[in-house]
Design a binder for these strands. Structure first.
Length: 883
RNA sequence: GGGCGAUUAGCUCAGCCGGUUAGAGCGCCUGCCUCACAUGCAGGAGGUCGUUGGUUCGAGUCCAAUAUCGCCCACCA
C-alpha cells in the first residue's frame, strides 16, 4: 500500500477483518488443552442496529478477548442474537400494516413464518456492524434464542420448573399493554411522572340522602367498582359501617368495606375498589371476597361489563364518564394531580393494570440462591457498588410474569385437555390427555417472555441440556460485560438460572460499564434525536480511533459523555503511530535483520526506553486485569506518544543519520534499529486489543517469516533484563535540562535557526558526565551551538539562566536578551520556589510532623528543603545580577 | 420515601493504597511547513479540587453534614 503521511483507515480496515475471519483466528477450540476464557455476548435484538451502547459494550469485550487470546488462553467470545419478542413482532406487524394487513389476517402460523422470513432477510444487520467494529466473535458458533437447540433448553427449563412447582398459572393483576396486546412484567413497565387529574366523585349512600366522595385518577374504572373502602379506625365514617352505596352510572349497589390499606390522610379517606383494574384493589378484593369485574378488553376498549360505555376506548370512556357524572351533579371537583404512570417499555403506551390468567415463576427460591452466590463472592460485580443495587432488587423481587400474548417467541409447552381441562406440561407434545385419554388437546397460545430464554444464554449457547465438550470447557464464563440497565432484566435472571440448572454461577465477574450520553449529558435515544451514530463515527475517523476513544472514556462508575472532538483527537493518535512507523520503516532499511539485543551495546536512552517499555507493559496489563480500560488506554497513549515518539525516536536520529563509515557509529545505529524494532513491535501488541486494524497492518509490514499475525502473537511480558532504573533517572534529568533550555529559548523568542551556546555549571561529576555524554543530543534537541561544562563559570549579565538542583544552565544571549522579561521569568520561578520552601519549612518546623511521620517522608522533605534553599539563593543571585 | 453516583483548568474528563510542583485531550496565546507526522513540533497562560466541619503529622483522596445536578427503585385512591 501507499506509505502516505496520512493514515487512511478505510483501506486498512477493509482487508483485515476478512483475513482474520477467513483464517479462523476468532475460533476457540474446546480441545486445545488451554485454560478457557469465555465471554458470551449480550445478544443484540435481531431487529437491532448498532448504537453507542453496543459499540462501547462490544469494544470492551473485544479488548478483553483479544488480550486474553494473546495471553494464551482458549478465548471464546460467543456470538448470537435475541429474538426480542415484542420488538420483532412489532416490526413485522408494521410492515404488514403497510400492506393493509394485520397479523390476524395471516393467522398465527403464517405470521410466524413471515417473521422468520423477515429475520433471514433483514434481521441481524447488526452482525455486519459488529464486524465493522472489529469484534473477534467465534461466528460459526453463533446462536439465536429461537433456534432449535435453545428452544430445547427453554422447554427443559420450563418443564423442570413446572414440575418443581416453581412455575404456576394464576389469575392476577398484571401490566397490560393495550397496544401490544400482551402482558408485560413489572420491570418492563417504565414509570414516568405525568400531570394528570384527580376526580372527586360522589357516590350516594343507599337508602339515605347522604353522599360520600371518592377520588380517582382513572374514573372509567368505576364501571368495575365492587366496593368502597374505608379505614376501620376512621371515626368520620363510623356511621357508614355495613352500609352500601349505589354506584353511579351503573346503578349497582356495592358494599362499604373496612380495610387497613386505606389511608385516613389521603383524599377523603374513602377509596373506590376496582379489583380487576388495580393491584391494591385486587388484594383488597381477595381479602373481602369481592367480585372482580373486568370492564376492558385487550385493546383497552370498554367491554360488555361497562354498560352504556361498551365499545368506547378507555380515554373516550373516561371523558364520557366524567361528563355524565357532571350532568348528574356527582362530580365534586377535578384537581390537577402529578402521579407516575406506567408505560410499556417497548411502545411507550400507557399500561393498564389488568386481571388475567398468566404464567408466573415463583422467584423467591431462585432469588435466595442468587443472593447467596454474590454474598459468598462466587460472583463479583465490578464496580462493586452495583452489588447493592442487585441485592436491593433481589430482596424485594416479586413473582415473574413470563407469559406473553404474542406469537413470536417460545410457545409455552403447556397443553390443555378439551375434555377434562387437565393441564399437561412435558418435554414431548402429548397426543392424548394423560388423565382422561381424550385426544382433544390444544397447546397454550401464549409465548414466553424474551428474557426467559436470554436468562439461559450462558449455558444454552454452549449446548445445554446436552453435556457438550464446549459446555464443559467454557462454562462458567469468565466475565459478563454489560450496562447497568439490564442488571434486573438479564444479569439477575442468568444468575438464578445458571445456579439452578448448572449448579454454578454463569460468570465469575460482572463488569458493569457506563451509559453513553450526549454532550449535554442526556441519555442518547432516538426520540430525543440526540444519537451519535457509531457507524458514522467509524466512517469519519476510523474504527480504531473510535474504539480507542470509547476505551479511554470507560472509567469505572461514570457515564460517558461522548464528544466527537475526542474521537478526532485519537484519529491523530493513529496518524502519529502511522508516521512513527514510517520513520522506523525508512530507517531500518531493506537489509535490516531483527535479532537479539546485546546488553553491552545498549546506550543510555536505549536502556531508558526499554525500561519504560517494561513499565508500560506491566501497567497496561495490570489495568486490564482490573477492568480499568481508561488507564490501560491512557498508558499506551502516553508511552507511544510522549515517550517513544517524543523522545526516543528523536534521540535515535543522531545515531541513524550519523555519517561516516566509523564502526562505532554503525554499531550504534544498528543497536538503535534493533531497539526501535523491538519497542515498535511490543507496543503494537499492547495496542492491538484497542486498535486491532492499524496494529495488524503495521505488524505485517515488519513481520519476519513464520511469525503470524499480531492477533495470534503472544501478549508482551516485562523483560527483567530491561530493568534499568538508574538510566531512567538520568534520562529524566536530561529531559528536564532540555525543558529548561527550550523554555528560555521560547520565552526569549530566540529564533529557531539561531544556535545558542549553552553553559552548564555543576560540581556533580555524575551530572557532568551525563551532560558530556549526551552533548550531541543536547545540541540537536535544544538547537544548541557550543556546549560547555564549566564548574567555575561566571555568568554575564546578558546570560539567560535556569537553576536546577546541583546544576545551573546559562545561555549567553547578548543582543537577544530582554532584561525585563528575564527578570520576570526568574521572579516567577523564585516565587514558586519560595512558596514551596515556605510549605516545606512549616512542615519541618512542626514537631508533630517530624515526630510522627515516617522517617522516609521526613527525610524527603529535608532534602527538598535543602534543594529549594539552594535554588532560591541561585535565583536571587541571578536576579540581582540583572539589575 | 429508599438507594446510588457526580461536583477537579474555558469545555470533556483522569487522579488506585492519603505523602514531590494536582494531570490529559480539546480550546486559547507565542514561535515554527526542522529531512516520520501541520491529524505535526517547541514553548506558554489557565485550577484556593461545590460548601462547611471532622479524622490525621499530612486530605482533591478518608468520615460527617450541606448544596446543586443526574440516575435507579418503591408509593401515589
Amino acid at each position: 500500500m501507499e506509505f502516505s503521511s496520512v493514515y487512511d483507515p478505510k483501506q486498512v480496515e477493509e482487508k483485515w477483518y476478512g483475513y482474520w475471519e477467513e483464517k479462523g483466528l476468532f475460533r476457540a477450540d474446546e480441545n486445545d488443552g488451554r485454560e478457557p476464557y469465555t465471554i458470551v455476548i449480550p445478544p443484540p435484538n435481531v431487529t437491532g442496529n448498532l448504537h453507542m451502547g453496543h459499540a462501547l459494550n462490544n469494544t470492551l469485550q473485544d479488548i478483553l478477548i483479544r488480550w486474553q487470546r494473546m495471553a494464551g488462553k482458549s478465548a471464546l467470545w460467543m456470538p448470537g442474537m435475541d429474538h426480542a419478542g415484542i420488538a420483532t413482532q412489532n416490526v413485522v406487524e408494521r410492515l404488514l400494516k403497510e400492506e393493509g394487513k394485520s397479523r390476524d389476517d395471516l393467522g398465527r402460523e403464517k405470521f410466524v413464518q413471515r417473521v422468520w422470513e423477515w429475520k433471514e432477510l433483514y434481521g441481524g444487520k447488526i452482525k455486519d456492524q459488529l464486524r465493522r467494529l472489529g469484534c473477534s466473535l467465534d461466528w460459526p458458533r453463533e446462536r439465536f434464542t429461537l433456534d432449535e437447540g435453545l428452544s430445547r433448553a427453554v422447554r427443559r427449563v420450563f418443564v423442570t420448573l413446572y414440575e418443581e412447582g416453581l412455575i404456576y398459572q394464576g389469575n392476577r393483576i398484571i401490566n397490560w399493554c393495550p397496544r401490544c396486546e400482551t402482558a408485560i412484567s413489572d420491570i418492563e413497565t417504565e414509570y414516568n411522572d405525568l400531570e394528570g387529574s384527580l376526580w372527586h366523585i360522589r357516590y350516594p349512600v343507599a337508602g339515605t340522602n347522604e353522599f360520600i366522595t371518592v377520588a380517582t385518577t382513572r374514573p372509567e374504572t368505576m364501571l368495575g367498582d365492587t366496593a368502597v373502602a374505608m379505614n376501620p379506625a376512621d371515626g368520620r365514617y363510623a356511621h357508614l359501617r355495613e352500609k352500601k352505596v349505589v354506584l353511579p352510572l351503573m346503578n349497582r349497589e356495592i358494599p362499604i368495606i373496612e380495610d387497613e390499606f386505606v389511608s385516613v390522610e389521603f383524599g377523603t379517606g374513602l377509596v373506590k375498589v376496582t379489583p380487576a383494574h388495580d393491584p391494591n384493589d385486587f388484594e383488597m378484593g381477595l381479602r373481602h371476597n369481592l367480585p372482580q369485574i373486568n370492564v376492558l378488553d385487550e385493546n383497552g376498549v370498554i367491554n360488555e361489563h361497562g354498560g352504556a360505555y361498551r365499545g368506547l376506548d378507555r380515554y373516550e370512556a373516561r371523558e364520557k364518564v366524567v361528563k355524565d357524572l357532571e350532568a348528574l351533579g356527582l362530580l365534586e371537583k377535578k384537581e390537577k394531580h402529578l402521579h407516575s404512570v406506567g408505560h410499556c417499555y417497548r411502545c411507550h403506551t400507557v399500561i393498564e393494570p389488568y386481571l388475567s390468567l398468566q404464567w408466573f415463576v415463583k422467584i423467591k427460591p431462585l432469588a435466595d440462591e442468587a443472593i447467596l452466590a454474590v454474598e459468598k463472592g462466587k460472583i463479583k460485580f465490578v464496580p462493586k457498588n452495583w452489588e447493592k443495587t442487585y441485592y436491593e432488587w433481589m430482596y424485594n423481587i416479586r413473582d415473574w410474569c413470563i407469559s406473553r400474548q404474542l406469537w413470536w417467541g417460545h410457545r409455552i409447552p403447556a397443553f390443555y385437555c378439551g375434555q377434562c381441562g387437565r393441564v399437561m406440561v412435558s418435554m414431548e407434545d402429548p397426543v392424548s390427555c394423560d388423565a382422561c385419554g381424550s385426544g382433544n388437546i390444544r397447546q397454550e397460545e401464549d409465548v414466553l417472555d424474551t428474557w426467559f430464554s436470554s436468562g439461559l444464554w450462558p449455558f444454552s449457547t454452549l449446548g445445554w441440556p446436552d453435556e457438550t465438550p464446549a459446555l464443559k470447557k467454557y462454562y462458567p464464563t469468565s466475565v459478563l460485560v454489560t450496562g447497568f440497565d439490564i442488571i434486573f432484566f438479564w444479569v439477575a435472571r442468568m444468575i438464578m438460572m445458571g445456579l439452578k440448572f448448572m449448579d454454578d454461577a454463569p460468570f465469575r465477574e460482572v463488569y458493569i460499564h457506563a451509559l453513553v450520553r450526549d454532550e449535554q449529558g442526556q441519555k442518547m435515544s432516538k426520540s430525543r434525536g440526540n444519537v451519535i451514530d457509531p457507524l458514522i463515527m467509524m466512517d469519519k475517523y476510523g474504527t480504531d480511533a473510535f474504539r480507542f476513544t470509547l476505551a479511554i472514556f470507560a472509567a469505572q462508575g461514570r457515564d460517558i459523555i461522548l464528544s466527537e472532538k475526542r474521537i478526532e483527537g485519537y484519529r491523530s493518535f493513529c496518524n502519529k503511530i502511522w508516521n512513527a512507523t514510517r520513520f522506523i520503516g525508512t530507517n531500518l532499511g531493506g537489509d535490516f535483520a531483527p535479532g537479539g539485543i546485546s546488553a553491552d551495546s545498549l546506550e543510555h536512552f536505549d536502556r531508558w526506553i526499554l525500561h519504560r517499555l517494561n513499565r508500560a507493559i506491566s501497567d497496561v496489563t495490570a489495568a486490564l486485569a482490573e477492568y480499568r480500560f481508561n488507564e490501560a488506554a491512557q498508558n499506551i497513549y502516553d508511552f507511544w506518544w510522549h515517550e517513544f515518539c517524543d523522545w526516543y525516536l528523536e534521540l535515535t536520529k543522531q545515531r541513524l543519520y550519523g555519517k561516516g563509515e566509523d564502526a562505532a557509529v554503525r554499531a550504534s545505529a544498528d543497536t538503535a534499529k534493533r531497539v526501535l524494532y523491538l519497542v515498535l513491535k511490543k507496543s503494537l501488541q499492547l495496542l492491538h486489543p484497542f486498535m486491532p486494524f492499524i496494529t495488524e497492518e503495521i505488524w505485517h509490514m515488519f513481520s519476519v517469516p513464520g511469525e503470524g499475525p499480531i492477533i495470534m502473537s503472544p501478549w508482551p511480558e516485562p523483560d527483567p533484563s530491561f530493568d534499568f532504573p538508574s538510566d531512567s533517572d538520568d534520562a529524566e534529568l536530561f529531559k528536564d535540562v532540555l525543558y529548561r533550555i527550550r523554555n528560555i529559548r521560547g520565552e526569549m523568542n530566540v529564533p529557531p535557526d539561531r544556535k545558542a551556546r549553552v553553559i552548564f555549571k555543576t560540581v556533580s561529576k555524575r551530572t557532568a558526565a551525563m551532560l558530556r555524554r549526551e552533548e550531541a543530543h543536547i545540541r540537536a534537541l535544544a538547537r544548541a551551538g557550543e556546549v560547555v561544562i564549566d564548574g567555575a563559570y561566571v555568568p554575564d549579565k546578558t546570560d539567560a539562566s535556569a537553576v536546577m538542583p546541583g546544576l545551573e544552565i546559562y545561555l549567553p544571549l547578548k543582543d537577544l536578551i530582554d532584561i525585563d522579561k528575564e527578570r520576570a521569568r526568574l521572579g516567577k520561578e523564585l516565587d514558586r520556589v519560595t512558596g514551596d520552601l515556605e510549605r516545606v519549612e512549616k512542615k519541618l518546623a512542626s514537631p508533630d510532623f517530624t515526630g510522627r511521620a515516617p522517617e522516609q517522608v521526613v527525610d524527603k522533605e529535608r532534602v527538598k528543603r535543602d534543594e529549594l534553599l539552594a535554588l532560591a539563593a541561585k535565583l536571587k543571585e541571578s536576579i540581582d545580577k540583572l539589575s
